[in-house]
């Protein structure tokens, strides 16, 4: 559905040139004359599209190229190759109409002015984004309500806790009602309650405005709560683009089988059925190679006194961890999914 895509990326690449220097005084002097540089491929020919109103999780380990991609899409970085359009704009041209319709929230960056009350930063954003007064009031009221900002608005930023600051950062970034949101670790460093609050808010905002959201997070709870679709990159390459629940099918070579036994587990040769993950009185969890799931469950039922048996995909966190650990180079990965062709 090309015509609905708000974000469209085609073979996007980014190579950084970084200076390299060995330790020591001699190396320091040598670097004065001859500087050694190294090219680092941060993003390697990735392609994908995101449709209007979608919330897509953008996953990968540290250094995978997620933030670099988000920076290219928000216009902070020029790509080395490939193309991208967001809302019909080429982001790195930083057209003002584009900047008025998108936002980038980065967990560790702040746009709130340190010394003045939060509401005054909001007022400044109203002027800079040319938000009409009634629309601004409405947005502040709505965001105050959704994020519970009332007690924070009159406080200077420096007096806020990390969680409070993050809520205000998000609000400041959304006053102009952007239709595309790039959220880079929006819940980083926040406690569980605050994380849940931010997640709920993103869902509400998406529902109310129909905004398109591309979000990175190391917290799988964020991804599971918000994203039906995920894009996984590793070493700058696209590894997977599809439904979150399909990730386990594609990458996890095992299933989790939970068995409840009437006569307890003592003395039973459970290790012969699969890898023993956990066991307690009468209950055991096994990890079984996917291909053997049917035969092993059959044997379990036939050979043991089973009162209940469930077969599940492993937790998504385990799957992701497995993907990143197993695939140093995604090109070599037998299960690598190619980007969907439009």
């Amino acid at each position: 559905m090309e015509q609905d895509s708000v974000i469209h990326i085609d073979q996007l690449s980014k190579i950084y040139t970084v200076n390299e220097r060995e330790a020591g005084l001699v190396a320091a002097m040598r670097s004065l004359v001859k500087r050694k540089t190294r090219a680092v491929q941060a993003v390697d020919s990735i392609s994908f599209s995101v449709n209007e109103g979608e919330i897509v999780g953008f996953l990968g380990p540290n250094g995978a190229g997620k933030t670099t991609t988000l920076k290219m899409l928000s216009g902070l970085l020029h790509p080395t190759g490939g193309s991208a359009t967001v809302l019909g704009f080429r982001p790195w041209e930083r057209n003002r109409d584009y900047l008025r319709r998108m936002t980038l929230v980065m967990g560790q960056r702040n746009q709130l002015l340190w010394d003045i009350p939060v509401i005054d930063t909001f007022e400044l954003n109203r002027a800079v984004y040319r938000i009409p007064e009634p629309q601004f009031r409405l947005a502040v009221d709505e965001l105050t309500d959704l994020l519970d900002l009332e007690p924070l608005l009159q406080k200077p930023t420096r007096n806020l806790s990390l969680g409070e600051r993050m809520k205000c950062e998000i609000a400041a970034a959304l006053l102009h009602r952007p239709s595309v949101l790039f959220l880079d670790e929006p819940t980083i460093g926040l406690d569980v309650t605050m994380q849940r609050r931010i997640r709920q808010f993103i869902t509400d905002y998406n529902m109310r405005t129909g905004a398109t959201v591309l979000l990175t997070s190391h917290y799988m709870a964020d991804v599971e709560a918000l994203c039906k679709r995920v894009i996984v990159i590793h070493h700058g390459k696209l590894l997977y683009d599809g439904e979150l629940r399909g990730l386990a099918d594609r990458f996890a070579p095992f299933k989790t089988v939970e068995v409840e036994l009437r006569n307890g587990v003592r003395g039973l040769p459970l290790a012969q059925y699969g890898e023993l993950m956990a066991h307690s009185e009468g209950r055991v969890t096994l990890r079984i190679p996917k291909a053997e799931t049917a035969s092993v469950t059959g044997r379990l039922l036939a050979e043991l006194d089973v009162s209940d048996l469930t077969v599940q995909d492993p937790p998504i966190e385990d799957v992701i961890e497995h993907v990143f650990n197993q695939s140093p180079d995604p090109l070599d990965h037998p299960d690598r999914q190619r980007p969907p062709s439009e």
Binding site: L113, D115, I116, D120, T121, E123, L124, R126, A127, V128, R130
Partner: peptide, 16 residues
């Protein structure tokens, strides 16, 4: 209006 906003902010920060 943008300059007005910036002036207002600049004065508030300077007062600190």
């Amino acid at each position: 209006p943008i300059y007005k906003g910036y002036f207002r902010t600049a004065l508030m920060v300077q007062f600190q």
